[in-house]
Computed example of a mutant assay.
Amino acid sequence: MATEAEKAGRDPDRRRALLDAADRVIRREGPQASMVSIAAEAGISKPILYRHFGDKSGLYQALADRHIRTVIKQLRPEFAKARADLRGRARATIGTYLDMISGNLNLYRFLFHRAGAEDSRTHSHMAGIVRSLGEELGAVIAADGAVADPVRAQILGHAFVGMVQTTGDWWLEHHEVDRRQVVDGLADVIVAAMTAPPPLSRDRPGGPADV
């Protein structure tokens, strides 16, 4: 028979309330927010908090799911728009991402800097979510017909996601850099990559000779 803690862990309303409590503490205290503070905010002890999610890693992963998937939900409409204005779509998508991470700075740093660094399962979980976004973007690029080769479309999709994520992380530490400069610089790279002619294959006539 399930224990009370196990039953509570399966209660979506209780789970949501605990994640809300964690959000409040992390937004208030930043990436150094303690599990003790989160438990106190929720009105329970730390061991009970962990039991609701299996362990600390389970709590981290639940927070990652909640917030990274929210970011993806916000980005999807932007990069799925018609390709008529490639630069505009790139700028809108990048701008939306930068606004979300800068507007939720403590949560972003908690998930990507603390949770991802101290827990390998959480790091792998978040990497999997980000990788799935790269795959989705690659599929959109291929479906648009912007890049005929589906493999090249996947390469670009993952490259764009990684580039925007790491540049955004850098920008959070350099607020002296104008946001528009970051958006335009990233958009320039994306447009150049999307509109460049495909490279000659080694297997095609006229391609570079094998070394």
Rank of each mutant, 00 (worst) to 15 (best):
A196S: 11
I94L: 08
H52W: 02
D23E: 14
A62Y: 07
R27K: 13
G206N: 01
A139K: 09
H67F: 14
M1K: 05
G58A: 02
H67K: 08
D55I: 00
G206Q: 03
L186P: 05
M100F: 14
E136V: 02
A193P: 03
I48V: 12
N106K: 11
Q32A: 14
L186C: 10
T96V: 12
R51V: 00
D55M: 04
R180N: 13
V71M: 14
W171M: 13
D65I: 07
A64P: 00
H52F: 02
H123Q: 12
S102F: 08
K73H: 09
G145P: 06
D144W: 15
A8F: 09
G30T: 01
L186V: 09
A2M: 11
P197W: 02
I101M: 09
D169V: 09
G134W: 05
Q32L: 08
R14H: 06
V182H: 05
W170E: 15
L111N: 04
P47E: 01
G145C: 11
Q32E: 14
V25T: 13
I141G: 03
M194Q: 07
H67L: 04
I129A: 07
R179W: 05
P208N: 05
Q154A: 13
G168F: 06
R91P: 00
G134M: 07
S132P: 03
K73F: 04
V25D: 11
S120E: 14
H158C: 02
V130P: 00
V140K: 05
D119M: 04
Q165M: 08
L111S: 05
H67D: 08
I72G: 01
G54I: 07
L86R: 06
D169L: 06
L186Y: 07
D119G: 11
P197G: 02
K81A: 15
P77V: 13
R66F: 03
G9W: 01
D65T: 13
R89V: 10
G43H: 10
M163R: 04
S124D: 10
V130N: 05
W171C: 10
P198I: 00
I44V: 15
S102L: 10
A21K: 07
Q181M: 12
P199A: 12
A148M: 08
W170L: 15
Q181H: 11
R24Q: 13
E136H: 13
G54Q: 08
R14E: 02
R121C: 00
A196V: 01
L59S: 04
R87L: 11
G145I: 08
D203A: 06
I101L: 11
A84D: 15
S34Q: 10
A8N: 09
V191E: 07
A115P: 12
A64D: 01
G185W: 10
L200D: 03
D13S: 12
M194N: 03
P208W: 05
V182I: 14
A139I: 00
F53E: 01
G138T: 02
P208M: 09
R114P: 09
G103Q: 08
M163K: 01
R15A: 09
D144G: 13
V182P: 05
